[in-house]
């Protein structure tokens, strides 16, 4: 399968009294991520389904991806915690995207690509960054096909 893992776009700083889960994307974060989506589109990347964390910043990021989604966008608490077997069991389609948070997205890439979650630091994600994995969705069963920063994707999206 082809699995695209995405860290949420740039969110507002926490405000006193506000739950972390309520932090929205900033205006600039939204605009920049729209550029990322254009880059993904230019690369011919699309998804059958998207699983996203229920935290507002991931929900908003997933919504910005919706033009690339043929099937459903689904909320999943599994994307807001350390990667677990239950998450791998959800990876049933040929092309899927996951939208989540650090350090979990790095841990997930390390787990799938090497079998060892502790190697997460070798796969850093910028906010709005993207890693594409290919292979079997099991620990050590995938390889990194692309690791793209948001800046690179925006540049790809701008190219005529």
């Amino acid at each position: 399968m082809k699995l695209t893992i995405i860290r949420h776009a740039v969110a507002a700083d926490p405000v006193e009294g506000q739950r972390d889960s309520a932090r929205p994307l900033t205006g600039a974060g939204k605009r920049k991520f729209e550029g990322v989506v254009k880059g993904l589109e230019r690369l011919g990347i699309s998804f059958v389904h998207v699983l996203h964390s229920p935290l507002l910043r991931a929900v908003e990021t997933a919504d910005l991806l919706s033009d690339l989604v043929e099937g459903e966008l689904r909320a999943s608490g599994l994307m807001a915690r350390a990667p677990a077997k239950a998450l791998l069991e959800e990876l049933t389609e040929e092309r899927m995207a996951l939208v989540g948070h650090e350090p979990y997205v790095s841990e997930l890439v390390a787990w799938l690509a090497t079998g060892d979650r502790k190697l997460a630091r070798a796969f850093p994600f910028k906010k709005g960054g993207v890693v594409v994995l290919e292979g079997e969705p099991k620990p050590g069963g995938m390889h990194v096909a692309a690791l793209l920063t948001p800046r690179q994707l925006r540049a790809i999206g701008r190219k005529r």
Partner: peptide, 10 residues
């Protein structure tokens, strides 16, 4: 997850 996400709708 859905109920959690709905809690934060703008």
């Amino acid at each position: 997850a859905l109920l959690n996400a709905l809690e934060e709708l703008p």
